[in-house]
Design a protein around this nucleic acid. Structure first.
Length: 703
RNA sequence: GGGACAUUAACUCAGUUGGGAGAGUGUUAGCUCGACAAGCUAAAAGUCGCAGGUUCAAGUCCUGUAUGUCCCACCA
């Protein structure tokens, strides 16, 4: 009799020890010089903004299962871990902390002081998240841990920026962008969420110069009229033919506005006449370019009216709206007000309503990059699981617009562009130039802005392996085998990794993209801090164990679909872990005469032994097939069924008669049901050409 | 406006190539039998959203439809 195990499994007593053992033995270390075939996964780097949430737990568990499975199959596996600096999110957090703890603002402490605090934030939270991932049981190669702002990755980012710039794929331009007046930075289109909001349609009379006529314009944002530089109608609109080429007078400010004709105008929308505000509306911006209209920016970085707004200068955009509407009314310019719902863009970080404004920003030209990224999905080099997400991916790329990559933030990769204060020459280079290449002035300053956080994440599959150096890691582990991620970041991340990999490595970054859904609460709501309905994976681990949590997340979940998280399922998962524990306990309690080698026992195998062996082999085959198809939930269910319903309920029960010599009838074993099982067994065993004698009718003990 | 997904037992969900309707939880009845009451043995429980179609055969394929969820879009 070997040592007696406790009656119930206590994860807390083992998980940490086992993990330590794994680490000490270097089980997760990847060897780039290995002869074994490679299998690699890059971990989507968690943000350093806070702690691990249940979505990470799902994402990581899927990867951990895949990587461990391949490791056991004899592959040289690399699970590359790391964390993401999460530019805007982290900056927002650090600003909050600064205010709360020191009562200071960004400006008070200055760029250097701010970055110092951001780095200490990163130290604290980066470490915390890594320790949480270890608690989850992630079998990453921690010796290779990276950070999107570590030295090597900085170099990769700079290299990419310079290469794209030199290729003409990065440009600086005055474009209309999304501006968050609260974060005071530009945002990419993907960082803006659109929500329907109740609003009004204000019908405003714009008088026609030197006539008694006027044209009525419907607008949802009267305050932007301060920046109007034209009025547009459809070239074929019969109502307005006579006005084209004439001049309208902007109410309140009295500015003269040319009346132009443009195909964009929808005759059925509003009044069919459109005010054009090139600096504050994306469509108007385009129209403005076509007609060479002046751009008048009337809002500042806090979305307050600037001096171009004359008497409204200093008002917040909403105060300005009220004031303008009131003045329009007083001046009899306001014809009517109708209720109207329209979609409003909000900052995905802070939910402030985003303001479209014209601004000088850096962009990545997307057209030529998008094409090959679409090709590799169309021709099947990259496969989505489930496949429907390739549509999401392709659809996004088909309608891609240039990517605004500059952010007016401090935490991130500062743009490697330098300006000559004398002649405004732009220089893009790795090191700061000591003097202007054009005029020789030594007065050279670096661009203040940082890059969009996704600019560095886009390089993750190869930057973490040492690019731009030519490393053996790249040779061995690139392209990676599968990327596991949620459908919510296909646009942000998957697309950008795809075109970056193709552009700089000339190879796809991964062969499969395994997409999972969101983990929702029991009512199906998104988990969020404001609702307080989040389930902390660490609390779940504390109470039920990491295996129970992982089992819960994988079973009953299929690729691409959201799942609801019920605490009861954690219990049943824990029960399964306990079942395994007790099966082991039973074996250990009875292994006095255990033999080590199959050869020593094969003469003595009985029906039950053959049965369980054949079932085991079949389950291994089935499970492997499911795993190959990324059907982890089904695979795990099959293991569960085998262990519980076949191994424990039948094999162990029957083995008791052999061990204790008990009468089966007394044990109340259900012969009838067993007979059914045996018929199935017969089939299995026949396939394996094992001849059997089945003493079904025997009520004697099985020997 | 475009697109995706969901709809199967009381609840949460599986169901891979068309042929058995399943699991966990819950419910009911009976079990302190040397692994496990976090357990065991049973039971009840579903016209697989609705309507058509293809097929010898449809939860599974096709068409339409209802309801819900989500994503994309520069709808003044």
């Amino acid at each position: 009799m070997s040592e007696q195990l406790a009656k119930t499994y206590d994860p807390k007593a083992f998980e940490e020890k086992i993990y330590q053992h794994w680490m000490e033995k270097d089980f997760f270390k990847a060897d780039a010089n290995s002869e074994k075939p490679p299998y690699s996964i890059v971990l989507p780097p968690p943000n350093i903004t806070g702690q691990l949430h249940i979505g990470h737990a799902l994402d990581h568990t899927l990867q951990d299962i895949l990587i461990r499975w391949k490791r056991m199959q004899g592959y040289e596996t690399l699970w590359q871990p790391g964390t993401d600096h999460a530019s805007i999110s982290t900056e927002v957090k650090v600003v909050e902390k600064l205010k709360k703890e020191e009562g200071l603002t960004k400006k008070d402490v200055g760029r250097e002081g701010f970055l110092e605090r951001a780095w200490s934030w990163r130290e604290e939270y980066g470490r915390k998240i890594v320790s949480q991932m270890k608690k989850l049981g992630n079998s990453c190669d921690w010796s290779r841990e990276r950070f999107t702002m570590d030295e090597g990755l900085n170099e990769a980012v700079t290299e990419v920026f310079i290469r794209l710039y030199e290729k003409g794929l990065i440009y600086k331009g005055n474009r209309i962008i999304n501006w968050c007046p609260s974060c005071r930075t530009s945002l990419s289109d993907a960082e803006v969420d659109h929500h329907d909001k109740k609003g009004n349609f204000w019908h405003v009379k714009y008088p026609i110069k030197d006539t008694d006529e006027f044209v009525v314009i419907a607008t949802t944002r009267p305050e932007t009229m301060l920046g109007d530089t034209a009025v547009a109608v459809h070239p074929e609109d019969k109502r307005y033919q006579h006005l084209i080429g004439k001049v309208a007078i902007l109410p309140l400010l009295g500015r003269e506005l040319p009346i132009i004709a443009d195909e964009y105008v929808d005759q059925d929308m509003g009044t069919g006449a459109l005010k054009i505000t090139p600096s504050h509306d994306p469509n108007d911006f385009e129209i403005g370019l076509r007609h060479n209209l002046e751009q008048i920016l009337v809002l500042d970085e806090e979305a307050k009216v600037n001096e171009r707004g004359e008497q409204y200068n200093g008002l917040d955009r909403y105060e300005a709206r009220k004031a303008i509407v009131k003045d329009l009314e007083t001046g009899s310019f306001l014809l009517e007000v109708k209720e109207h719902d329209h979609s409003v863009g909000q900052c995905s970080r802070c939910t402030t309503v985003v303001e479209p404004i014209t601004s000088e920003q850096w962009f990545v030209k997307m057209e030529s990059l998008a094409k090959p990224a679409m090709d590799v999905v169309n021709n099947g080099d990259i496969q989505f699981v489930p496949d429907r997400f390739s549509k999401t991916y392709l659809n996004w790329l088909e309608n891609i617009r240039d990517w605004c990559i500059s952010r007016q933030l401090w935490w991130g990769h500062q743009i490697p562009a330098y300006y000559c204060s004398e002649c405004d020459e732009i220089m893009v280079s790795k090191e700061a130039p000591t003097q202007c290449v054009k005029c020789g002035s030594a007065d050279v300053v670096q661009d203040e802005d940082v890059l969009d956080t996704w600019f560095s994440s886009a390089l993750w599959p190869f930057s973490t392996l040492g690019w731009p150096e030519d490393t053996k890691e790249l040779e061995k582990f690139y392209p990676t085998d599968v990327l596991v991620t949620g459908y919510d970041i296909i646009f942000f991340w998957v697309v950008r990794m795809a075109f970056s990999g193709l552009e700089f490595m000339d190879k796809i970054p991964f062969k499969h993209v395994l997409v999972h859904g969101l983990v929702r609460d029991a009512e199906g709501r998104k988990m969020s801090k404001s609702l307080g309905n989040g389930i902390d994976p660490l609390e779940a681990i504390e109470e039920f164990g990491a295996d129970a949590l992982r089992f819960t997340l994988i079973t009953g979940n299929t690729p691409g679909n959201d799942m609801r998280f019920h605490l009861e399922r954690l219990e049943s998962s824990r029960n399964f872990a306990n079942k395994l524990w007790n099966a082991t306990r039973f074996v250990l309690m009875n292994n006095e005469d255990a033999v080590e080698k199959y050869e020593d026992v094969k003469e003595h195998l009985n029906t039950m032994d053959y049965w369980i062996i054949s079932r085991f082999n079949q389950v291994v085959r089935d499970v492997t097939e499911n795993m190959d198809r990324f059907e982890l939930g089904i695979a795990l269910q099959k293991i569960y069924d085998f262990v519980w319903n076949e191994y424990c309920d039948w094999y162990i029960e029957f083995s008791k008669s052999r061990l204790y010599g008990e009468n089966l009838e007394e044990k109340k074993v259900d012969y009838e049901n067993f007979q059914l099982t045996f018929e199935e067994l017969d089939y299995d065993v026949q396939k394996k050409r094992i001849s059997l004698q089945i003493p079904i009718d025997s009520k004697d003990k099985f020997v």
